[in-house]
Nucleic acid binder design. Structure first.
Lengths: 228, 228
DNA sequence: ATTAACTGTGTCCCTGTGACACTATTAATT
DNA sequence: AATTAATAGTGTCACAGGGACACAGTTAAT
């Protein structure tokens, strides 16, 4: 615990931001302009700024906000990767896991940085920089595990959502059919989730569906049983 | 992701090593000899060595082995704390969560470093360096959560253990009575856990109890339901 | 006006845990 | 040596929550 400085060591922050578009899971990637790994896809990240960033989460928020122009719905630390995966030297990368509702990337951001929503299913076809494939894999596992016992996939949806909408998100994330009934039972026992009175979703065939919303954060709510 | 070096930034590794002694949960602490926080208790940790440590886990193993002289049973990354909690400057601390069976600290280690097993219940009376109180709290939560759906508390026990022994460990960690039957049901559906034939535990009143052992790591085994 | 899709709800089954009792076994006590 | 008390293993019942599925009422498309 004596602190001589570590030599030639970079500390970065990387972010795995997921959303649901068109009933499939997408992750935000940027195309690298410079070496190393120029032309390859990478997670949106940056260098930890010891002046601006009081901690890792705030660093991640700052960087994501710079890249997307938006505040995202949910963010937590994923894990930290230390090692020799950057040709420029030993690196410590604090990776974060984030969720947001589907939105269009602002054109400026999209052009300058070439940030894009990439369907997770297509990742195997892409070249990914550094160890970002592993990081995405870990983030995916985190998301899938949490989907089993928590409500955080709600953060992939807009402020107002329907039971069926959430059921679809859950099914997409877990890769298997989830019963509406099951989702409904879970939602209705959480007092932080309330129907928006008067507000219904329409457009599709069938009856109008009730819209719900969150009155407080639901990231701490865990269920006793996992789905499946 | 362009890598100019962060200025004046230290990367350290801290370890929260738990065990069970005398039916209560203990954590390994060392008394700090130097400033800052001299004389206060701290987690066993050290500086990330980019030459020796291929990744964070190996750094943690190395440091714990140096401090205890022993290989510990289980280790995983907890989370990384970045911030201004060290008066000498901005620090990134990769914290780890570890378990081992009860053992006596080698006298040399115990005297030189003043490493000690401290009962978790007594922590509130101690002065703890840096943000180590928060880290221990997070590690405790991790342990308690994992105890609900996994078998990792087994790593607090010797190679051979009894059902009742494990039940006690679970009860201590979770702070409430766990039914022998429940533990037994969980154990017997895991094929990696086998009775050691011929080996029984004795000494206490009552029938001899069967000893079990692990044939492979059980850190990936998760149950669908949480206890309680 | 009819049809098809869809939302909300009711119900049954199944599984795993909690609780507790019963039996057999062993050490401590007399 | 006989008795007692503690203990390990097991059997069983109740309960809760998820999976599956069916049914009724509603809405848009035809």
């Amino acid at each position: 615990m004596s602190l001589k400085m570590n030599q030639s060591l970079s500390v970065t922050v990387d972010n795995v931001l997921f959303t649901i578009r068109d009933d499939s899971l997408h992750v935000l990637l940027v195309k690298r302009a410079k070496e190393p790994f120029a032309g390859q896809w990478a997670l949106p990240g940056g260098i930890l700024d010891t002046d601006k960033d009081a901690d890792g989460e705030r660093a991640a928020s700052r960087i994501l906000e710079e890249k997307t122009g938006l505040r995202i719905n949910y963010l937590e630390q994923l894990r930290t990767y230390a090692g020799d995966f950057d040709p420029r030297g030993y690196t410590v990368s604090i990776a974060h896991f984030a969720l947001t509702s589907d939105f269009a990337l602002s054109p400026k951001v999209a052009s300058v940085e070439e940030a894009q929503w990439v369907p997770v299913k297509l990742l195997s076809d892409l070249k990914l920089a550094f160890i970002h494939r592993d990081i995405i894999e870990d983030a995916l596992n985190r998301l899938r595990e949490k989907a089993k016992y928590s409500l955080i996939p709600l953060y992939c949806l807009p402020k107002q959502f329907t039971i069926v909408g959430f059921t679809k998100v859950m099914s997409v994330i877990l890769g298997k059919t989830i019963q509406r009934k099951t989702v409904q039972r879970r939602l209705e026992q959480v007092e932080a989730i309330v129907p928006v009175k008067g507000e219904v979703a329409t457009g599709t065939r069938g009856p109008q569906s009730q819209l719900y919303t969150l009155t407080k954060p639901i990231n701490e709510i865990n269920f006793e049983r996992n789905l499946n």
